[in-house]
Design a protein around this nucleic acid. Structure first.
Length: 570
RNA sequence: GGGCCUGUAGCUCAAUUGGUUAGAGCAGAGCGCUCAUAACGCUUUGGUUGCGGGUUCAAGUCCUGCCGGGCCUACCA
């Protein structure tokens, strides 16, 4: 038995996530967690909400609520939707937890003790009207280069020139529109990532089999220009982890908070403390401390490509720099983006299908299957309603759902609702078992390697093999001439349903459960021995014919949804 | 501007890292089956691998120049 620590990038608290967010981290992480559990391995699967930063404060203000209250409510909402999608987190935490505050402050202290933090005095744009310092992106003005009048403080969207807020002509706050801005001096703490460049690079270089996307982004940051830069880890905000040196005040840093990207990854660790404090577990250190039993843990992170620099560099710099024996990540699985109907999903513009809406129109397994089978592993991929409809109808309704339907209904009409007795497996069945064994071993290989599309394809092939067998065996014919033979064939078919439920559970857990329920069994043992797996349900074992597992998506429905989700979210 | 990824059948994607005749699924065509959600099975039509050069016994794969798509570029997260 091996031990797997699995984390999904933590979704930002600001609003409900869309399907692109889901497929880029939480869903593949859940697939892997469910698979490892199914193989009998010990799993700790963690996720949380990322609650700090300017956008959370602004969203709360817009909602007319105190930010703490807003975040608490949004956590509830996200938590409920995650449950709706069957995301099997052992704990869904919050980066604003006390545990994370303490741990973040602890890391700051040990990093400072190690000489890896320096204080920097700099000037930033301050808005009197908004009563806050403005991140560059919240300042707009006229581009000095091309004259575009909505250039952002960091870059002009028209001529793509990189800018500094002071370069802008007539700058104003995008929050209030105010032009009452001034450059004001402020002090911040910087993490001396530059001092850790060699150590980080050596670590990255020894990682094997990581996605190109992961290592190329890390390499770029390590070696671009002057190399890895130091990074500000504090901000002038109200909402966040107060800057403290452990449990002591940090002179000169009063009223400031840590930067969201400093405290967010630390929440992976703090989340396991929350897990224990919530009474769900007993020992978090054996997952995280290599001096306390975490040596044999395999730690896998899942994230969208935008998160890669923070997980390959910033967070490891925090871990390595601490000098403490924390567990480092073993494998980073990163994803490209899922596009929606020719453009991007967009939270800010409300474009695409959001997680709550998806669940309103179809059960989670429809989405889980299609999204995972089309997950953007090698490049950006595209969601279209036509492809979603045909993919779901063909794979789930026709290939899998109909298989369950045809075998259970045939058995009911000829033998009754119990596994029939008589006959024996012959050459045809041996061929099927050999074929399935090869396919299942391949499926396991893809799942271990986190080759998700290939795993989905293999799983579908396993389903198809069942239909091929039925066609060749033709129990509806043999029943007329040799009822015992037909009984053996149907017995095998019913056992295939249980086998399919076990194998498919990581992708479509709810349906898998429904299949086991129909077969009236809770035996979900992994088929290490396929032959044995196909004799699990003995003759005489009662079952029920389940309702249609997957109703097909009709053209009318597709057109309705296409129209409904064509514009922006209201 | 710089960096990275990407372009393969009508569509969505593969191709064991330079090695037989570039493969699957969907869609299309034909046949079969009748247990089943008008479902299933078998067969089959589609490709000058974006375009032009080059290296090599051998290039979808490596080099180079164009053309197109995407992402990142460190104060959004």
């Amino acid at each position: 038995m091996s031990r797997h620590l699995i984390t999904s990038a933590i979704p930002y608290i600001n609003g409900i996530k869309h399907l692109g967010n889901l497929v880029g981290s939480q869903l593949p992480a859940d697939l892997f967690a469910r698979y490892q559990r199914a193989r009998g391995n010990e799993v700790l699967f963690l996720c949380a909400t990322d609650e700090h930063g300017t956008p959370a404060e602004l969203a709360a203000a817009k909602a007319g609520k105190p930010v703490a209250e807003y975040c608490a409510e949004m956590w509830e909402v996200q938590s409920e939707i995650a449950e709706g999608f069957g995301l099997s987190f052992d704990h869904f935490g919050r980066s604003s937890s006390d545990q994370n505050k303490k741990l973040t402050q602890h890391f700051a202290k040990v990093l400072d003790d190690a000489g890896l933090i320096r204080e920097v005095s700099e000037t930033q744009m301050y808005s009197h009207t908004d009563g806050r310092f403005l991140p560059d992106r919240y300042i707009e003005g006229t581009c000095p280069n091309c004259g575009f009048d909505s250039a952002r403080g960091d870059q002009c969207d028209n001529c793509t020139k990189q800018l500094d807020p002071v370069d802008l002509i007539n700058p104003h706050s995008t929050i209030s529109g105010s032009t009452d801005l001034e450059m004001r001096e402020t002090k911040h703490l910087y993490l001396r990532q530059s001092a850790m460049k060699d150590k980080l690079e050596e670590w990255i270089d020894t990682r094997e089999g990581w996605p190109v996307l992961t290592t190329s982004i890390a390499k770029k940051w390590l070696n671009d220009g002057d190399g890895l830069q130091d990074r500000g880890i504090t901000r002038d905000l109200d909402w966040g982890v107060p800057v403290m040196r452990g449990d002591q005040p940090w002179p000169g840093m009063e009223g400031k908070v840590f930067y969201v990207w400093f405290d967010a990854p630390i929440e992976y660790i703090a989340c396991s403390q929350e897990w224990v404090d919530a009474g769900k577990g007993s020992d978090w250190e054996r997952w995280w401390r290599t001096d306390k039993g975490a040596d044999d843990v395999t730690y896998t992170q899942f994230m969208g490509k935008d998160n890669v620099p923070f997980h390959t560099l910033s967070f490891p710099a925090t871990i390595l720099g601490s000098g403490e024996p924390w567990k480092l990540v073993d494998y980073i699985k990163s994803f490209n983006y899922l596009n929606y109907d020719g453009g991007q999903f967009s939270t800010s513009r409300g474009r695409g299908v959001f997680m709550d809406q998806a669940l309103e129109i179809l059960p989670a397994d429809y989405w889980r299957w299609w999204l995972l089978a089309n997950v953007p592993e090698t490049s950006d991929s595209e969601f279209t309603w036509e492809q979603f409809q045909s993919g779901v109808n063909k794979d789930l309704a026709d290939v899998l759902g109909n298989f369950v339907s045809r075998i259970t209904k045939f058995c009911r009409s000829k033998f009754g609702e119990a596994v029939p007795e008589g006959g024996a497996f012959g050459a045809q069945e041996e061929t099927l078992i050999a074929d399935l064994t090869a396919k299942i071993r391949a499926y396991e290989g893809f799942m271990e390697e986190k080759e998700i599309r290939k795993a989905a394809q293999e799983l579908r092939g396993i389903w198809v093999a069942g239909n091929e067998y039925l066609q060749a065996a033709a129990p509806w014919s043999t029943f007329k001439t040799d009822p015992d033979l037909a009984a053996a064939q149907v017995r095998l078919g019913l056992n295939l349903i249980r086998l399919y439920a076990v194998l498919a559970a990581p992708f479509i857990p709810a349906t898998s459960e429904a299949m086991l329920t129909a077969m009236q069994t809770d035996n979900n043992d992994w088929p290490d021995d396929v032959n044995a797996a196909l004799t699990t349900l003995p003759a005489g074992h009662a079952f029920t014919v389940p309702d249609v597992l997957f109703a097909k998506i009709t053209d009318d429905q597709r057109e309705e949804w296409q129209a409904r989700f064509a514009g922006v979210r209201g």
